[in-house]
Design a protein around this nucleic acid. Structure first.
Length: 571
RNA sequence: GCGCUCGUAGCUCAGCGGAUAGAGCGUUGGCCUCCGAAGCCAAAGGCCGCAGGUUCGAAUCUUGCCGAGCGCACCA
């Protein structure tokens, strides 16, 4: 069985042929726009091509629409409509063919990626503590994007960038040493920034007691130990959401490349030494009290002229001490991704990193790197709602709610589904009460139950000696059945769009809509025995209906697979 | 002050150039002798923040206001 192209593309191709035969001199519009219609009384799909052609042909849109609709040949019936739309209704043979196609694994996959290498960097949380719910959202969105890309024929790498050096990591080492001293009742020369008490015993089992005197060696040893433990803890937690990485890149691996970068920038006259950036506006802003908090720690150093490439100011890349900033290694890191051959760099970042997009792109431009290959998906904040009010504090961590606690409370599937249910750019309220409900109020259960119902119906058929069959699909003619068929044929387009536009939340919409039709179908059969899926005295009809139901099952499993949630056969 | 994101139903959000603006929650009222009611149906509820501009056509593009969140250290 061959797989077909997406239905929009199919109609568009037929339309294009039609236009070429009527207007041979028109060369534009090789792929005329075709989109789904929201109001199905007009048809299933529509094109506004007549409006576009009217400008060139200097004719009324409706006249052009009439002519095209009359000549149109394809898998749909064309109908002109005022003031110039062309509406299409998919032919039922095509709808039936699609039912057969749903069971091929490549259904709703595509090859628009054509093997293009894409790198998706997500989570990348510092290994200084536990993940919170905000990380969870980024994790789910990033992983689902990766699944969508793979499904669209891209060659995908899931990458985690570990900031394993710098002040925060030093503070992590100090925190561990401080905790050890505290446990031993010794006054510690170290300050505790992070909560790492849980690591104390294991550290002491593997390492000698740290000195009570402050020293660099102890800090490094403690930091090395702590960051690796915390990183593997993070990975283990993400596994619970079925998330793993193909590549873990450490910031420390780029330290060696810093001198070369500085030399290169010097040759190109892109850096200068100063106490503060040369940009006037920036100086004024610094005088502003709001941004003066950290002025004491600004010692000046070597600045990169990002201000010339779209950034609002120049950014420091080497401190007076000679130490690089995280920005320096970030530049090397992104250049490295390009060196590794990725055509698209997708970063999933929290909204609090929004300000870094411009400066990173500016730095890439400064180095003549293709900044347009970097695409950043910004995830807005997550609030947890219980009993109608916001949950602000974690039971264990205090200030933020931990991802682990959320998974413990509601389970992995609802976490993934809910995090996917809104576009990344919208703030999101996670309703804990709703996520845990076992009823149709809860969209996850609604969809999973729809899948379970398809399995139960098939089992029911088997008990009555009826197997699904595509022999008599022409018997499917009730509106509830046609609605399901129309929704099924639209899915490959929607899945493709979700990948192209980096919008995984569309998967939730598609799944919910298909589930709704299935539930409605089954209920219709309860209210009207003519519509029962399994009726032992009408075997041919039942077989066709079971085939339809089975197709819905295949489609839901495909969608659930992309979302990373389970498809239970029973609930 | 500047930048980013966003103002759509009571709440949380889809829709982002097309025809009567959608979903979930919440509210109100119906539907089980019969494939799981863990379901379905119906009702109420909108100057799509405000004001101009572009277009055959604007919630959608554009400009200016107003409002919210996030950010604006050489922390990552």
């Amino acid at each position: 069985m061959k797989t077909r192209r997406n239905i929009c593309a199919e109609i568009s191709d037929s339309l294009s042929e039609c236009i070429r035969s009527i207007y041979p001199h028109i060369e534009e519009f090789n792929s005329p726009p075709v989109s789904q219609i929201s109001d199905s009384t007009f048809g299933d799909y529509m094109s506004n091509i007549a409006f576009l052609l009217s400008k060139i042909l200097k004719q009324k849109p409706i006249d052009i629409a009439n002519k095209i609709a009359k000549e149109f040949k394809g898998n749909a019936d064309a109908e002109p409509a005022n003031p110039g739309f062309i509406n299409f209704k998919i032919k039922r043979e095509r709808l039936c063919e699609n039912l057969e196609e749903t069971r091929v694994s490549s259904w709703s996959s595509s090859n628009i990626g054509a093997g293009t290498k894409v790198n998706i960097e997500f989570v990348s949380a510092n290994p200084t503590g536990d993940l919170h719910i905000g990380h969870g959202r980024g994790a789910v969105i990033g992983d689902t994007l990766a699944r969508l890309f793979a499904n669209a024929g891209f060659s995908v790498t899931r990458e985690y960038y570990v900031n394993d050096i710098g002040k925060q990591i030093d503070a992590l080492g100090e925190s561990l040493l401080s905790a050890i001293h505290k446990k031993n009742g010794i006054e510690s020369p170290y300050s505790a920034t992070y909560k790492v008490e849980e690591l104390v015993d294991e550290y002491l089992n593997l390492n000698k007691e740290p000195s009570s005197e402050r020293n660099r060696e102890d800090i490094c040893r403690a930091a090395d130990f702590a960051k690796e433990r915390l990183l593997s803890k993070i990975m283990k937690l993400l596994k619970r959401l079925d998330i793993s990485f193909d590549s873990v890149v450490r910031e420390s691996s780029f330290i060696g490349a810093i001198p070369d970068l500085i030399n290169e920038l010097k040759k190109k006259d892109l850096i200068y030494e100063a106490d503060e950036p040369e940009i006037e506006k920036e100086k004024k802003r610094r005088a502003d009290s709001k941004s003066a908090i950290h002025r004491d720690s600004m010692e000046g150093g070597t600045f990169l002229r990002t201000g010339k490439f779209g950034d609002e100011t120049d950014r420091i890349i080497l401190r007076r001490s000679g130490a690089a900033t995280y920005f320096t290694t970030d530049i090397i890191y992104h250049r490295d991704k390009l060196f590794r051959g990725y055509e698209r760099l997708v970063n999933v970042w929290g909204a609090d990193h929004a300000g870094h997009v411009i400066r990173l792109k500016a730095a890439m431009k400064a180095l003549s790197l293709p900044a347009e290959k970097l695409e950043v998906v910004l995830c807005q904040m997550v609030r947890l709602i219980r009993g109608g009010t916001e949950v602000k504090m974690s039971k264990r961590a205090g200030t933020v709610v931990l991802l682990e606690e959320l998974i413990d409370e509601v389970g992995g599937d609802p976490v993934r589904f809910f995090f996917l249910s809104r576009s990344a750019s919208a703030q999101f309220d996670f309703d804990l009460d709703l996520a845990v409900k076992k009823s149709s109020d809860n969209p996850v259960f609604y969809c999973q139950y729809a899948h379970a119902r398809t399995c139960q119906l098939l089992a029911n058929g088997r008990e009555n000696g009826i197997e699904p069959s595509n022999k008599n699909l022409h018997l499917l003619k009730d509106e509830t059945e046609l609605e399901i068929m129309r929704k099924l044929i639209a899915i490959p387009d929607s899945v493709q769009t979700a990948a192209i536009k980096l919008e995984p939340h569309r998967l939730v919409e598609i799944s919910t809509s298909l589930s709704e039709s299935l539930h409605r179908y089954q209920t219709a059969g309860k209210e009207n025995s003519d519509l029962r899926v399994v009726t032992s005295d009408k075997k041919e009809l039942s077989s066709a209906r079971l085939y339809l139901v089975e197709s819905v099952g295949y489609a839901l499993r495909k969608l659930f697979g992309l979302m990373g949630i389970n498809a239970p056969e029973k609930m």
